[in-house]
Nucleic acid binder design. Structure first.
Length: 422
RNA sequence: GGAGAUGUGCCGGAGCGGUUGAUCGGGCUGGUCCUGAAAACCAGUAUAGUCGCAAGGCUAUCAGAGGUUCGAAUCCUCUCAUCUCCGCCA
C-alpha cells in the first residue's frame, strides 16, 4: 500500500506506474475522498474537544452542560457515520493502487518484455531420445499422477520411492545451506488469516487463486512469504536488529484459477507443493534493499549451481510483475521436456508496500519510527524442481544420476533403471 | 466439544463511572557522582491521526467491535486470544 502523502505528492508517477503494470486507478477520486475525510476528522475533533471540556467540569446528571452534551453526541454520530463510509471507500481504493517499479525495470505490457540478464550452465545434449519427467516417473515408479488425480483431484500427484526421498533431501539441504548463511530457520503455518494475505498484497487481487477454508477467517497460504512477512505485523523492531533474514519452510496451496488448460500434465503447475522461501525484513533504504535483493539472488543461483542445473535470470518487466513489487528477478531452470527454461524462483523487492499494510516498523537511533522494507525469494520449490533434476540428469540406460551434493543425504548416487520398492 | 477464569503501557502490577494516557515498581535512555564500575540521585521513556512554516495544539487508543451515559479502562452485548479442569487426539 502506498501512503496517501506519497500518492498526493507523486500523482503522475503513481499513475504512470499503474498504467505500466496494466492497472487502472482513480487518483482524483482517492485524493478528493481524502480531502473530505480530513475535513470530517477536523470537525469531529473540535466537537470531541468541547465534549471533553464539558465532561471535565464534572456536572452530574442535568443542566446546560448535559443538554449541550446530548447535542454534541448527535452531531458527532452523524459525522462519524459519514467518516466511516468515506474511510471504507478510501481504504478500498487505496488498497488497489500498485507499487511503483524502480527506474531500471523494463516497461512493457506482458512477459515478452522480460529481459534475460544472465545465463549459467550447459544445456544437456542427449544422444538418445530424452524422456519427460512424466515418462521417467512412470518408468521408474517415482511419480503417480493417475492415482494422484484419483485421490486428490485435478493436478494431484504422489511422489514415490527415490523421488520422495529426493524431495525431502532437497529441502533439508537448502534449509541447512541458508542457516549457515545466518538465515533464521522457521517453519510457517499454512493456515492463515486474511490479514496476512491482504498484508502481503495477495488480496485484493489474488482472492480467486486462494483456497478459503470453512472457518470464518482461514485460508491456505500460497507461499511462506505470507505468514513469514506477517510475522512481525503490528510490531516495532529495533534498527540494530535489521535486517531480519528468514529461511522458511511451508506447504503452499494455489487454486491456479486462471490457469485452466495450462501445464496440465506433470509436476509443473500443482495445487499443492512445498517450498523453502527466503524472507527479509529490512530497513527503509532502497540502496540496502537492492544489495539484499542481489544477496537473495546469489543464494538461489548458488543452489542451482550446487545442483548443477542450467538456468537463466530474467528481470521482469512492469506488465509481468505483481502489484506489490518494485523490482523482480525470475530464475528459470532448464527443463528438457519443455525445451525451455521454466520458472523455479522468484525474487522481489516490495519496499514498504507490504509493511505499511502489515504495520511493521522499526525504531531508528533518533527515536523516530519508519516502515520496514520487505523482500523475498524462493530458495527451492518442489516437486517443480524435480522436473529439472530428473530430466537433466537422465542417462541413456534409463537411469538418473543424483547431484554429488545430495548423494550422501539421500543415500544413493543414481536412480537405477528398474522398479525398486524401497 | 463441555465447564470455569483472565485479558491495562517494554515487563510486573494498581485502578472498577468524573482532570487516568493512565498510581507505583522494574527495565531502558541520558545526566550527576566516581580512577572505573556498582549503588544512589535527577531527568526522560507509547502509538496513530489531524491542524500548523515551526514551536506546539487538538483527537483517538487500557485485547477487538458495538452499545448505555452529559461523561467509560471502569457498566452492558458480541468477537478474539490466553490459562485451568474434563473429553478427544498426531
Amino acid at each position: 500500500m502506498l501512503s496517501l502523502d506519497f500518492i498526493r505528492n507523486n500523482k503522475e508517477k503513481v499513475l504512470q506506474a499503474a498504467k505500466n503494470k496494466g492497472r487502472q486507478v482513480d487518483l482524483d477520486k482517492i485524493l478528493s475522498l481524502d480531502d473530505q475525510r480530513r475535513k470530517l476528522i477536523q470537525q469531529a475533533q473540535v466537537l470531541r474537544e468541547e465534549r471533553n471540556k464539558l465532561a471535565k467540569q464534572g456536572k452530574p446528571h442535568s443542566g446546560e452542560g448535559s443538554v449541550r452534551g446530548r447535542q454534541i453526541k448527535e452531531e458527532l454520530k452523524k459525522i462519524e457515520d459519514d467518516l466511516t463510509k468515506i474511510q471504507t471507500q478510501l481504504d478500498s481504493l487505496v488498497s488497489f493502487v500498485p507499487n511503483v517499479p524502480l527506474p531500471e525495470v523494463p516497461i512493457s505490457k506482458d512477459a515478452t518484455g522480460n529481459k534475460e540478464i544472465r545465463k549459467w550452465g550447459k544445456i544437456p545434449r542427449f544422444d538418445f531420445k530424452p524422456k519427460s519427467h512424466i515418462e521417467l516417473g512412470q518408468a521408474l515408479d517415482l511419480i503417480d499422477l493417475e492415482r494422484g488425480a484419483k485421490i486428490s483431484g485435478f493436478r494431484g500427484y504422489f511422489l514415490k520411492n527415490e523421488a520422495a526421498i529426493l524431495h525431502f533431501a532437497l529441502f533439508f539441504y537448502v534449509f541447512n545451506k541458508l542457516i549457515k548463511k545466518d538465515y533464521l530457520p522457521i517453519i510457517a503455518p499454512a493456515v492463515i488469516k486474511s490479514l496476512s494475505l491482504f498484508g502481503c498484497g495477495q488480496f485484493p487481487w489474488g482472492e480467486q487463486d486462494t483456497y478459503k477454508l470453512n472457518d470464518e477467517d482461514a485460508y491456505l497460504a500460497g507461499t511462506a512469504e505470507q505468514p513469514v512477512t506477517s510475522y512481525y505485523s503490528g510490531e516495532i523492531l529495533n534498527e540494530k536488529d535489521l535486517p531480519k533474514k528468514f529461511v522458511a519452510f511451508s506447504p503452499c496451496f494455489r487454486k491456479e484459477a486462471g490457469a485452466y488448460g495450462k501445464d496440465t500434465k506433470g509436476l509443473y503447475r500443482l495445487h499443492e507443493f512445498w517450498k523453502v522461501e527466503q524472507v527479509i525484513i529490512a530497513k527503509n533504504n532502497i540502496e540496502e534493499a537492492k544489495k539484499l535483493h542481489e544477496e537473495l539472488q546469489a543464494n538461489c543461483e548458488e543452489i542451482l549451481q550446487d545442483l548443477g542445473l542450467p538456468y537463466r535470470v530474467m528481470i521482469m518487466c512492469t506488465g509481468d510483475m505483481g502489484e506489490p513489487q518494485m523490482k523482480k528477478y525470475d530464475t528459470e531452470t532448464w527443463m528438457p521436456s519443455r525445451q525451455a527454461y521454466g520458472e523455479t524462483m522468484s525474487n522481489s523487492i516490495m519496499g514498504d508496500f507490504q509493511t505499511r499494510r502489515l504495520k511493521i516498523k522499526y525504531r531508528k537511533k533518533d527515536g523516530s519510527t519508519e516502515y520496514c522494507f520487505s523482500l523475498n525469494n524462493t530458495a527451492l520449490a518442489s516437486p517443480r524442481i524435480l522436473i529439472a533434476l530428473l530430466e537433466n540428469y537422465q542417462q541413456k540406460d534409463g537411469s538418473i544420476l543424483i547431484p554429488k551434493i545430495l548423494q550422501e543425504l539421500v543415500g544413493f548416487d543414481k536412480i537405477k533403471n528398474e522398479i525398486t520398492t524401497l
